[in-house]
Design a protein around this nucleic acid. Structure first.
Length: 273
DNA sequence: ACCCAGGCCTGGA
DNA sequence: TCCAGGCATGGG
C-alpha cells in the first residue's frame, strides 16, 4: 500500500539518529524491525511511501509508529518563514523527518548503549543484542525474511555480564542490566511514564545508574513521545555553542522542541560529512 | 600514536 | 554546583 505525505522521507528518518534498526536494503528502500514485526518501505516519490504490509496492519501499527496524525508541515513552514536563519535552513533540509513512536523499553536500552559511541557502533551492538536475546521470526510478507525481535526486559534482566561483554557493550553492560531490572524488579511500567509529564519521566528514568540527563531526554522523546524534550548531545552542544553562542531559547518552541532538535541534529551532522 | 563518538559516574574542590 | 579523570570499544 502507498501513503501520500509531504513530510515523510525514509532516508532522513533512517539517518536522524532516533532509530537504530531501520536500514537501507536497496535504492530508496528500507527494512525495519519494530513491535516484533518486520516491514519494508520504499520512497517511490518525494511524497509517496510504499509499505510492504496490509492496510489493516498499517492502521493498527505503522500509522501510529510514524506519527501520521501529527502536522509536521505547519512546523516546517513556520520555521522556514521564521526569523531564525539556521533553523529555517535546518527545517528545509530535514523536512521529511518525523518523531517515531518507538517502544519504550527498546529506547531505554538503545540509548543506554548509545553513550560515548557513534551511530554505526550503536547499531552493531543493538543488532547483536537482538540476535542473542531476541526471538527469531520469519516475515511472510517479505519473502521469508528472517529477523530478530528486540529482547524482553525479563531476558535482559537475567543476562549475565560475561555474555553481554562478548557483544562489545563495554562498561555499558551493567547499565543495560540495571535498565532491564528497573522494569522487572522495580515494577516500573514504562508506558505509565507516557501519561505523566516529561519532567517526571526524566527524573524517574534517571534513578537508573547509567541513565543521565541526555539519555533520559532521548528516551522521553523517542520512547515516550514527550515531544517537548530537547536532548543535548555533543552535536547539539556544538550548535548551541558555535551557531547560537549560548543564546538559543528553547522556550520559543513550546511543546515541540524535540522536533526542532531533530532538524538541528540532522542538519549539523550532515554539514560535517 | 592520538582523538572522537547521540555520556555517565565518582570523587574532590 | 561545577570540574577531572576514568571508563570499553571501534574507527578515522
Amino acid at each position: 500500500m502507498v501513503i501520500v505525505s509531504e513530510n515523510f522521507n525514509l532516508q532522513q528518518i533512517a539517518d536522524s539518529g532516533q532509530c537504530f534498526r531501520m536500514n537501507e536494503i536497496g535504492k530508496d528502500r528500507y527494512g525495519l524491525v519494530a513491535y516484533g514485526r518486520y516491514i519494508e518501505l520504499e520512497q517511490v516519490d518525494y511524497d509517496k511511501i510504499w509499505f510492504s504490509c496490509s492496510e489493516d496492519e498499517y492502521q493498527a501499527i505503522w500509522k501510529s509508529y510514524f506519527d501520521m496524525d501529527y502536522d509536521y508541515n505547519s512546523i516546517v513552514q513556520s520555521l522556514k518563514n521564521g526569523e531564525d536563519e539556521f533553523l529555517a535552513k535546518a527545517a528545509a533540509y530535514g523536512s521529511g523527518i518525523r518523531i517515531l513512536r518507538q517502544e519504550p523499553f527498546e529506547m531505554l536500552i538503545s540509548f543506554i548503549i548509545s553513550q560515548n559511541k557513534n551511530i554505526p557502533s550503536i547499531k552493531k551492538c543493538i543488532e547483536g543484542l537482538c540476535t542473542k536475546y531476541g526471538e527469531k521470526r520469519i516475515s511472510q510478507d517479505c519473502g521469508g525474511k528472517e529477523y530478530y525481535t528486540f529482547p524482553a526486559a525479563e531476558v535482559l534482566a537475567s543476562a549475565n555480564k560475561e555474555d553481554l561483554r562478548e557483544l562489545k557493550l563495554g562498561y555499558r553492560d551493567q547499565y543495560v542490566i540495571n535498565g532491564a531490572k528497573f522494569v522487572t524488579e522495580g515494577q516500573n511500567d514504562l508506558n505509565k511514564l507516557k501519561d505523566c509529564s516529561h519532567e517526571e519521566a526524566v527524573s524517574a528514568l534517571r534513578t537508573i545508574t547509567g541513565v543521565g540527563l541526555k539519555v533520559a531526554n532521548c528516551i522521553s522523546l523517542f520512547g515516550l513521545h514527550h515531544i517537548e524534550a530537547f536532548p543535548v548531545d555533543v552535536w547539539i552542544k556544538k550548535v548551541l555553542d558555535e551557531v547560537y553562542e549560548g543564546r538559543f531559547d528553547v522556550n520559543l518552541y513550546p511543546g515541540y522542541a524535540g522536533i526542532v532538535q531533530q532538524y538541528m541534529f540532522y542538519y549539523i551532522r550532515n554539514l560535517n560529512m
